[in-house]
Every structure is written in C-alpha cells, then in structure tokens.
Nucleic acid binder design. Structure first.
Length: 418
RNA sequence: GUGAGUAUGGCGAAGUGGUUAACGCACCGGAUUGUGGUUCCGGCAUUCGUGGGUUCGAUUCCCACUACUCACCCCA
C-alpha cells in the first residue's frame, strides 16, 4: 500500500509529461485565438453545488462523487466536472456584471469514483470552455468550432462530430412522456437494462446495443427528441447547423445522442474517434446559472479528456514530444580538476546552455557512456593536462572530433555551436 | 456496482510438486595507460503479488485478500 498509488490515479513520468504539456499548450493557444480567458477554480467545492448543478439523479451524483467532511463538518466534494465550479465562480464574483460575454477556459484534474479501465480514471483531467451570457446559436457554433480546431491541431485525425438537440424545459418532458407512453405497454420485452432506463432516462434506450431493444423501438415507432422539439428549439438547432456548415465544420445529426448531465438544454454534441470513444463533449445549459442561485443566464460549453486525447494519439503512433536533450556533459578525468569542472559547469549553465556532470565517481569511460545515454552533444574533458594548460577538451559526440579550447573561451565557443 | 482474465529481477518473458528459477533488454565491471555509440568476456531474483491451507516438500495445487487489465453500467 505504502508504495502503491491509489486506484485509478497515475504518475506522469518524465517523457510523458512532455506530451501533456504539448497538449495543454496547444489548447491554450487555440483558446487565445478564440479570445477565451483562463480561469482556475478550486478542486473541491461544497457538495451541494454538484448535487444541484449536475443533477441529483445522474450517475455522477448518485454514485461517483468523492465526498468528505472537513473539520468544520462541511460536506465537500472533489469536483467531478468543470462546469459547475466555473458557473459558481461566475455567480460569486458577479462576472455577469461585465457588459461583454464571459468566455472562459480551464484545464485541470477531475475526480470520479469509478472502476478504472482503459481511458477511464478516478483522477482524470479535462480541458474545457464555457461561454456565459448569450443564447445565440452563433455561440454554440463558435464553441464547437473551437473544439474541432483544437482536436484537429492536436493531430487526432479522424474525429467525428455528432450533434443533437435535447430540447428545453418545455419540450423535453413532452418527449419523455411520449417515449414512456410508447414503450410502457411492451416494457417486459425490453432487456433488464432498458427496463430501468425506461424509468430513469428513456432516451438511453436508443443507445442499447441489444438488437431486440432496437427492433422494439422501431416496432412502436418511438419518437426521438428531435421529433418533439418546440418551435424555438427547432429553430435554434437549425441555426447552429447552418452556422457550422458555413464555417466548414462537418457533423452528423444523431437524434439518439444523450449526455450524462442534467443541466443540458438544446444543443448537445460529442467529438468521437470512430472505433474508440468520445474524446470530448458539450452542450448548452440555459438553466444552470439560475439553478445555482445566479441571475437567469444562458451558457454553453464543452470539455474533453486529456487522457483520452493522449491515448488516441498514442494508439496512432504519434509521440508528440520527447525528453529534452542535453547540450553539454562535463567529464572529470582527474580529482585535481574537480573545482575547475564545477566552475565551468556553472559558467556554461549561466550562459543558458544545459549542462550536467557525474556525481557518482565514475570512471572516464563510464562518464562518456552516460553522456551518450543522455544524448549530450558535447563532452568537456577536464584532467591534469587541461588544468595545467588552462584549457578544456571539447569533444563533439556527433562527429567524434575533439579540440582544446581555452577555458576563458569556453562559453563563447559553445554558444555558437549549441 | 456486475462479469472475466492476469500477478516471476528495473522492463519484457520462459518454467517445474523436490538439490543451483531459462532467455532477451537495461544496468554494472573488464578487453594494458584519460574517451561514448558496434563487438567480445564476466556479473546481476536465498526468490516467483500478500496471507493462509494441502503436502515429507510449492513459485508451481486449493482458498482468501490486494492490485492490475478488459468488458458492462456510465462517462472524459
């Protein structure tokens, strides 16, 4: 236990961290061009915020939250997603007072108590954006375009955008009723999972992999949400689709697409890597700000998983970044050169050139091996001879050539060659 | 929460109810003087996830636990 990380967590070792940084840098850069600003909110919040915001009946709230009590007997929860905290910060800091739209992005760890498996962790990381203050379909389209641009720039390759509209407080209940009404009479012919879905989230039945359930849906001619959309929602959805077409973002409409959080209204979408899984998802949430106690404010956003994006990249054989190479390795051939070596090492480093040395009293041969292993470009050899002559032997490992350089010329010699 | 599989040195991976647990990679040392990447030679698990049990004897058989992996539910 002592030497074992908690289940569902991961150590990011040197060599992996570089890939993460590249992804984060790319996301920040895309957000900059879309003019979104970074926000950092706490990793834990009052439990109530997620219960209310994400939805009491969602799986996240029902069984996946990391909840604990602090010494003041407050119930706190490690954030399972990013939107609730951002919306809370928006309300608490009265960002709604800003005459402009609030356009934010974030990157950080999220926590869900789940059984870990491929691409699924208890501590995982999401990048995401939220726009607060506009109902315009143009904003939905912008947020989607931002996500598509990011995934494309990452090099994820074939990513599909699936779109749906889940309606609003007016049309959604209507659809639910219609579906339940259609399926209730034949409920006993649904699989066990779908029978519980019928009560909890009928829309999910469309997602069932069981062919008999699909056949039953066709048989009773079950309506999709899109069939039940009110005029305003239908119009909004049409506008979003039209805008995507005009900006060159391709998509498919999937009337069976559902999202796991209660707060979504109208537009919902997922970015899917075919044959693998969803790498990002989002939607509009017009009721959430009011739900957590702020003024009626529409919002829209999306979030994606860093681990999943990285996994897809890895499976495609793309290794975004590697460990940084070392420019200079100082090899000490003789104890009498130790202080000179320390001095030169410091000078080289101060000149902005990466440099390292042996601290394990290795033989010269072993020091060369180490330099080679570390990918060093130059090895500086210092021994009795060099100290006596006031020089340093500089060997270029890529060519094998070695020259003597005056110690006081070393930095300028290296600067022009590194 | 449900189901299945796996668990041997830093990594990968063979293997057997019984004196010294293959091999590969990595690592360390050497092949005469202060020089790497190739080659050659040598070294490197009193120990087979943890705890019980069966047995004269178990790393190999049984049980429990833990962890990991995969799938389902759901999701990033």
């Amino acid at each position: 236990m002592l030497t074992q990380r908690p289940r569902g967590t991961a150590d990011l070792l040197p060599g992996e961290v570089e890939s993460w940084r590249r992804l984060e840098d790319t996301f920040r850069e895309v957000c900059r061009t879309y003019h979104y600003q970074e926000i950092r909110t706490p990793i834990f919040e009052h439990t109530e915020l997620f219960a209310r915001g994400v939805g009491e009946t969602t799986d996240i709230v029902e069984k996946e939250m990391y909840t604990f009590e602090d010494h003041g007997e407050r119930s706190l929860t490690l954030r399972p997603e990013g939107t609730a905290g951002v919306v809370r910060a928006f309300v608490e800091n009265k960002l709604y007072g800003n005459p402009d739209l609030t356009k934010l992005f974030y990157i950080g760890p999220m926590f869900r108590y789940e059984k870990p498996q491929k691409g699924r962790w208890r501590q995982f990381h999401q990048y995401g954006v939220e726009v607060l203050g506009s109902e315009a379909p143009d904003v939905d389209a912008e947020v989607i375009a931002l996500g598509a641009t990011f995934l494309e720039r990452l090099g994820l390759g074939r990513v599909q955008l699936e779109m749906n509209s889940v309606g609003c407080a007016e049309c959604r209940p209507r659809h639910r009723e219609a579906m339940v009404a259609a399926l209730r009479p034949v409920a006993d012919r649904l699989c066990a999972d779908c029978q519980s879905r019928l009560e909890r989230n009928p829309l999910r039945i469309f997602d069932c992999k069981n062919e008999s359930c699909q056949a039953l849906l066709r048989e009773v001619n079950a309506p999709t949400v899109l069939d039940c959309l009110c005029d305003a929602c239908a119009e909004h959805f049409d506008a979003v689709k039209r805008l995507l077409q005009e900006t060159g973002v391709s998509y498919t409409v999937n009337p069976r697409l559902v999202r796991g959080l209660d707060y979504y209204t109208r537009t919902a979408w997922e970015f899917i890597v075919p044959g693998y899984s969803t790498v990002a998802g989002g939607g509009r949430y017009n009721g959430l700000v009011a739900e957590v106690g702020g003024p009626e404010t529409p919002g829209v956003g999306f979030a994606g998983g860093l681990e999943r994006a990285l996994l897809v990249l890895q499976e495609q054989g793309i290794h975004p970044a590697q460990k940084s190479a070392l420019a200079v390795y100082i090899a000490v051939a003789d104890d009498t050169a130790a202080t000179t070596a320390a001095r030169l090492l410091q000078q080289v480093r101060e000149a902005g050139i990466s440099a390292d040395r042996d601290y394990q009293n290795k033989g010269l041969k072993a020091q060369f091996k180490a330099a080679d292993r570390l990918g060093a470009r130059f090895v500086l050899v210092l021994g009795e001879n060099e100290v006596a002559a006031g020089t340093v032997s500089v060997k270029d490992l890529t060519t094998g050539e070695q020259v003597a350089v005056a110690q006081d010329q070393l930095v300028s010699y290296l600067s022009t060659r590194v």
